[in-house]
Amino acid sequence: MKPIEPRDDKDQEFFIGWEQKVPPRQKKFLYNRLIGIFTFAFLVAILLPALQVHYSQSFHYKNRLVNLEGYFTKNPLPSLLVKRPGGIGEEIPSYSIYYLSYPQKRAIPLEVADMYDSQWVSLRGTLLFNQSDTMIEVQPRSIDVINYYENTPPRPIIPEKSLGIHELKGELLASKTYLGATNPGYGKALRASSVLHVTGGIAPMLVINLPEDTTHEFILIGENNIPIEAIAPYVGTEVKIKGEVIVWGDKLVLKTNLTMINGGQS
């Protein structure tokens, strides 16, 4: 039987921690490996960002406060309707629709929405947006009713057109995360954040990725224009939803209920 050979023969260098110097050959060996590890690490540091999914562009200009005036409506979801300037033909909606939210992961509280519904208001906030939609993160207590006295403008008319009942397949997200609360604002890693937004009252959004890098984004509302309760478990997942597709101004809205999601399965 062979004896168990020691790894080192008698001429091998030997180092212990409290010695001041590492033997030269061992030192050279280690530093060569260190160079290899550094090279690999720096390659990874460049590769990982380079190969990330290139997300759709969304922004949140947190450091820029804007003051806007418009018509506050709580249906189908809290929004500000802002008059578009210039000459506007009949086919083009004359108001821009900006969804409203409160800071962090909260929606406009119901009592605030009730208080300002159907009134002309001014408010202050920061903007979240992508190429299709804009949301204002309203500073609390910054909403003021505009008193036009006898010159109150007429109530805005936003054209609404139903495109019928359709079954759509896409990813269910929180509108605020998707529109720029974080970028990227979707994916598995962001699911917890999206769920918290939706449970805080932020409207969910169905995002359908189409060929050629286009998307359709549907704001999801319940029947009778009230939020769909218990939708949070579906957020951040791929879903099939059956509902009424409505074009509201130049926004897409999907009216549905919980039983119409994934065929009613939880």
């Binding site: 590890i37 550094f38 690490a41 720096f42 990874v44 540091a45 460049i46 990982l48 960002p49 380079a50 990330q52 290139h54 997300y55 562009q57 969304s58 922004f59 949140h60 974080t182 970028n183 990227p184």
Partner: peptide, 23 residues
Amino acid sequence: GISSYLALFTLASILFTPTISLN
């Protein structure tokens, strides 16, 4: 090594995904 990794990762992120949130 750690500082260089973090710096490189940050620079590469800004280069390849310029709209990514800082957090």
